[in-house]
């Protein structure tokens, strides 16, 4: 049974169109023009229990809007939506107990107090006993590698520590569905890696379904096997990340350094020659027969060095969206 089911989901907004400057303001004041913007346009997908799925797409593509509809914050304009067997809109208490939503750029921790106080508030809201609360806090804190930080006022924590504390507070009630919107925003590489490790541990330990959006492709590549590519409100791709890469760039580039120059005709039997400069040659070889091509290359030519590179995934997706 799928944990999340979405059919023909769409959301449109009315936005006011206003030109900048005083003239624009005055104009806008007198004659208000609005236009309908389709933020999410007829999206369909299903997500099974325990899956980790990444939403990718450029800014304003509709990722966040979709996430917010999934957890019931925004009313969809149309379509069918089931999350954990509930319609999110009703904001049933049983439903809310099963989910959590973490936003990288918004916080729920109380600014002036140590995270532990916010955690206690959450424990009360979710009806956890004192003992359960301290057990779970201890458990999550060790998974997140948090210690003293829990006793220091939030305003005195670093960005990475704060995010980890946010995660702790958000996961205290052990939700089975996690919505994460840019959970690693602004964190340094170390902190990003920590958060990722934690999320995959949490997923393994509790079989939680995790849906995340991120600008850092590394988050997606290391966590999600499956991705949904959204652009201008439409779902462009739904499937394995591998397949997306395959689809976007069917070939890989192979750079070889030869001991002596070789005729270009012979080389191009193995793939498209993109660069040819005496001993240095760059070839594009289809992914499917990469290994066989390379092994015969190695046999046939006097090769000093060989390097296989993948075009960076950010570039690929960037190219697709532009």
């Amino acid at each position: 049974m799928s944990k999340i089911e979405v059919r023909a989901l769409s959301k449109s907004y009315r936005v006011a169109a206003k030109k900048p400057g005083i003239a624009g303001t005055v104009n806008h004041f007198i004659y208000r023009r609005t236009k309908e913007v389709l933020a999410v346009d007829n999206i369909n997908f299903k997500i099974a229990k325990g899956e980790m799925v990444g939403f990718i797409g450029s800014n304003g593509a509709g990722k966040t809007t979709t996430l917010k509809m999934l957890c019931g914050l925004i009313h969809p304009s149309g379509g069918y939506l089931r999350v954990a067997g509930f319609s999110p809109l009703t904001r049933d208490k049983k439903f809310l107990r099963q989910i959590t939503f973490v936003m990288g750029q918004k916080q729920q921790l109380i600014w002036d107090l140590p995270p532990l106080d916010s955690i206690k508030v959450n424990a009360a809201i979710y009806g956890l006993s004192e003992k359960e609360c301290s057990n779970r806090t201890y458990e999550l804190a060790s998974m997140l590698d948090l210690g003293d930080e829990l006793y220091r006022p939030v305003r005195k924590l670093s960005l990475g520590e704060r995010m980890k504390a946010e995660l702790l507070a958000a996961l205290l009630h052990r939700p089975s569905i996690l919505f994460l919107d840019e959970p690693t925003l602004g964190l340094d590489i170390n902190a990003q890696v920590r958060v990722r490790q934690f999320l995959s541990n949490y997923n393994r330990k509790y079989g939680a379904t995790i849906i995340l959006t991120s600008h850092y492709m590394a988050d997606i590549t290391s966590l999600c096997r499956r991705v949904l590519l959204i652009d201008k409100g439409r779902l462009l791709f739904d499937g394995l990340l591998q397949d997306l890469i395959q689809k976007l760039s069917p070939s890989r580039s192979v750079i070889i350094e030869l001991n002596s120059p070789q005729p270009i005709e012979q080389l191009s039997e193995y793939g498209e020659v993109v660069e040819y400069d005496k001993n240095f040659v760059r070839l594009l070889i289809p992914r499917n027969d990469l290994t066989s091509k390379i092994s015969s290359l190695l046999i046939k030519f006097p090769i000093k060095d060989l390097e296989i590179t993948d075009p960076p995934i950010e570039q690929l997706i960037g190219r697709l969206l532009s």
């Binding site: 917010k68 957890c71 019931g72 914050l73 904001r91 208490k93 049983k94 809310l96 107990r97 989910i99 959590t100 939503f101 936003m103 918004k106 916080q107 729920q108 809201i125 979710y126």
Partner: peptide, 13 residues
């Protein structure tokens, strides 16, 4: 304004 109302709405309360 800050959008933190999201967190309030997501609590089972």
């Amino acid at each position: 304004q800050d959008g933190t109302l999201d967190y309030v709405l997501l609590k089972p309360i």
